[in-house]
Simulated assay, not measured.
Amino acid sequence: MLLAVDVGNTNVVFAVCEGREIRARWRIATDPRRTADQYAVWLIQLMAIENIDRGAIDQIIVSTVVPRALHNIDVLAQKYFGIDPIIAGQGPQGWGFQADVDEPRSLGADRAVNIVAAHDAHAGDLIIVDFGTATTFDAIDYAGTYKGGIIAPGINLSLEALVSAAAKLPRIAIEKPVTNSVLGRNTEDQMQIGVFWGYVALIEGLVARMKAEIGRPAKVIATGGLAVLFDQQTQIFDAVDPDLTLTGLAILAERARAG
């Protein structure tokens, strides 16, 4: 079985996979200071709860956008599983796709893994929208070449900045406003409308501009924690895949196993 580890700016996701099927997954807040021993105590107990034998793990792959966290994940793999982990994007196989941009090396590992999974599952030109700490938009052509993208502040980050900068504004949950009106009658409603519908407008507007520049039909794939919430309020997504990153890691692990 495969242990896939996706180290994001906000959370680290661990998933046990059989082939591309996710058997179990867990997440913990990203903290570069967390030691391999701390990860092990947490992870091995959770695996036991799911009746997953640590000895059944025979491959580990890691994707990270937090370089400082990699060392302790590497120690975890070697000390507690006896496995040298695969670092996604490194080695002779790399990512397995071309990047037609100015600085290919600057492409984040999470975005690269999403590209691998999306191109494997869908034909034609693609736009991937990933709702993470940042919301990213990535364009892939029909041949699987990365053509560029957009990085926008994530909705949680935007809301946090708003609340932090304005002393009188309260903290609110990110959810669809109760009212259908865009004229809020109190502070909380006005914030909810601005954050939620403002973000829907941002997504729709940027995707429309990307499609116009691509100049060919492009399928839009959404992933990330808030993808399902926004999918309920816009028709812009052709598919929603919350597990896109983990699937991409499983595909890269398959390729590494095949040599």
Rank of each mutant, 00 (worst) to 15 (best):
I140T: 02
R185I: 10
G55Y: 06
G148M: 11
M47Y: 05
L183D: 10
P177F: 07
L206G: 03
I28W: 08
K168Q: 12
A165S: 15
L229R: 03
I22S: 02
G225I: 02
A15M: 06
A253V: 00
Q232F: 04
A121N: 05
T247L: 04
M210E: 07
G198T: 08
P32K: 08
N11S: 03
D231G: 14
I61Y: 01
V163Y: 09
A212W: 02
I49L: 11
F230W: 03
T30R: 07
L249N: 01
L3D: 00
T234I: 03
I115V: 15
A143E: 13
F230T: 00
G96D: 04
Q192V: 08
P153I: 10
T136P: 02
S164Q: 14
I127L: 07
V66I: 14
F237G: 01
A143D: 12
A24R: 04
Q93I: 10
Y142W: 12
R25G: 03
V200C: 10
L107A: 09
I151V: 11
L206I: 12
T179L: 13
R255Q: 08
W197E: 14
V16I: 13
G91L: 06
D130E: 11
N9P: 08
A121D: 07
D243I: 00
A250G: 01
T145Q: 14
V228R: 13
S106P: 01
V13A: 02
Q38F: 05
A109C: 11
L2T: 03
A69P: 04
A121K: 12
L2F: 13
Q45S: 13
L244I: 05
L70M: 13
E213Q: 14
W26S: 06
F237K: 00
F237Y: 01
F131P: 01
Q93W: 05
Q235T: 08
L206Y: 09
